[in-house]
């Protein structure tokens, strides 16, 4: 006989793990299916804005979250959800390793992944000068020249890092100003070896066995310009991981984010979402924890009402 779980949580970072803790404490029969623990948070370098941890790292927080899961005896299934279906009252979850699971409710907590520029050279030069992880790879460009592409906090943080490690850094921002925190913008503007190029659209990355430079469109003069750099760090934001959710359910917005109300419910009964994958504007670890809890409690209410 097929087991119908009370809930299936997809994803195991701040939101998914918080939901799991609340479901476990309610004695529900549920699964967590996830690719890894900590997701994008585990890659976020130093974290200084999560209460209770004045200075930690994303990876350390992920380890703490995992310990918390284990303390409740919760063991995630390491797999990737590739399709979600709803038939009658129940959901069917299909994974990459061709397993199928059924449940009464779903909590989508799959987070997001770095966006790509989708320009020539980006894929060919990945790890040959192109990187999406400044904390990982910037130290390999000690004394060299790098370009950082983006206009938000991640790009600004990468700029600060480059100013300390590299000879010279360019920040290429497609907009006329930065979107990040004031404290970071002010710090970057003070760095003598960081040059900011505004209104610039990166068009192409070139090189031989490694990156040699990039070309961008100067939107002010409409000219294509060239920069010679050794490394390129791309920080242009994140894309929600929602490809496995059918478009016909009409619960995603134009950016692919899942639209939720303040209880983290979607318009599809029984389907909840929490964390960076939702349309909530603030993509923060603390917010994801709160939404995970809200979704967990939402699942409990839903199950009580639909007995």
């Amino acid at each position: 006989m097929t087991t119908i779980y009370d809930s299936i949580i997809i994803g195991a970072s701040a939101a998914g793990i918080s939901a799991a803790i609340y479901l476990k404490r309610q004695g529900l029969n549920f699964l967590i299916i996830t690719k890894d623990i900590g997701g994008e948070m585990a890659l976020s370098g130093i974290v200084e804005n999560y209460p209770g941890f004045p200075k930690t790292t994303g990876l350390e927080l992920a380890q703490k979250f995992e310990e918390h899961l284990k303390s409740y005896g919760i063991e995630p299934i390491f797999d990737e959800v590739i399709q979600l279906k709803k038939e009658d009252k129940f959901f069917e979850v299909i994974t990459k390793s061709e397993n199928k699971y059924n449940s009464k409710t779903i909590v989508v907590a799959t987070g997001s992944t770095p966006k790509k520029l989708n320009i020539p050279g980006e894929i060919n030069f990945f790890h040959k000068g192109v990187s999406y992880c400044s904390v990982c790879d910037m130290p390999l460009f000690k004394g060299k020249t790098v370009a950082i592409i983006g206009g938000g906090n991640s790009a600004l943080e990468a700029g600060i890092m480059a100013s300390n490690i590299c000879k010279k850094g360019y920040i290429i921002n497609k907009n006329p100003s930065f979107k990040g925190d004031k404290i970071l913008i002010e710090e970057v503007l003070k760095k003598p070896n960081i040059e900011i190029i505004y209104n610039a659209l990166t068009q192409e990355i070139f090189g031989d066995s490694v990156v040699k430079g990039l070309r961008y469109l100067d939107k002010t003069t409409n000219e294509i310009k060239e920069l010679n750099v050794d490394g390129i760090f791309i920080h242009i934001g994140l894309k929600p991981n929602t490809e496995f959710i059918p478009n016909e359910w009409e619960i995603k917005n134009e950016f692919g984010e899942i639209i939720v109300n303040k209880f983290c419910e979607t318009n599809l009964p029984g389907l909840f979402a929490a964390g960076d994958v939702t349309d909530f504007p603030h993509k923060q670890i603390g917010v994801a924890v709160g939404q995970g809890i809200s979704a967990g409690l939402g699942v409990v209410n839903y199950l009580n009402k639909n007995k």
């Binding site: 890659l43 790292t57 904390v135 990982c136």
Partner: peptide
């Protein structure tokens, strides 16, 4: 590298 999370993993 020192702060690389994937290295730590």
């Amino acid at each position: 590298t020192t702060w690389c999370p994937w290295c730590q993993k």
